[in-house]
């Protein structure tokens, strides 16, 4: 067995461990249900129990395969962004954080301010990453925010007559 793992293997192992943890939480709920065939019928826990066992076996096999893999001698360095350091993880984290903030903002301040801030920041980030010009990116972000928010309002509220909490401040 190899003692040192490549970054790719480490990622695979961490994700496999995450799946194992999630599966254990799932299994804890299965154990609280009545046992399959306790009443002569498969019951609600039948398929979940099968899935649980399957995922344990599959993930342990994946884990075993990853741990047995030899460490990569020289991995090519991932090409990064010219303007955003560590874009490979910073970008996704930012996108997730902004989307989560949008959901919170949507609830507490309403569609119009939340959507404007969200779309402006997303557009601003992508443009800053591409050009490195903060002012230009901010300007494109603000214009995009206004246009996309207006489009969303026209599309959802005016065209399809769907309810949105527009302004909750």
């Amino acid at each position: 067995m190899s003692t040192s793992a490549s970054p790719r293997s480490t990622r695979q192992i961490l994700f496999a461990l995450l799946l194992l943890a999630g599966n254990t939480v799932y299994a804890s709920q299965v154990l609280q249900m009545s046992r399959p065939f306790a009443t002569g019928e498969p019951g609600p826990s039948f398929l979940p129990a099968l899935l649980c066992v399957f995922v344990y076996v599959a993930v342990l096999c994946i884990l075993g395969t990853e741990l047995r893999k030899p460490a990569a001698a020289a991995l090519a360095a991932a090409e990064g962004s010219e303007h955003v350091p560590q874009v490979g993880w910073l970008g996704p984290v930012l996108a997730i954080a902004l989307t989560a903030s949008f959901v919170i903002g949507f609830l507490y301040v309403g569609y119009l301010p939340a959507a404007f801030a969200y779309t402006a920041l997303i557009a601003g980030y992508f443009n800053y990453e591409e050009s490195g010009h903060f002012r230009r990116a901010a300007l494109i972000g603000v214009v995009t925010g206004l246009c996309v928010t207006l489009f969303g309002w026209l599309f959802f509220v005016q065209l399809f007559d769907l309810y949105l909490p527009l302004w909750e401040i």
Binding site: A95, L98, T99, I122, A123, F156, L164
Partner: peptide, 19 residues
Amino acid sequence: NRGVLYAFIGMISMVGVYA
């Protein structure tokens, strides 16, 4: 522009789920 495109996709996806 990628920024415009993904801002649009993000907004329409999440608001679409709510709607």
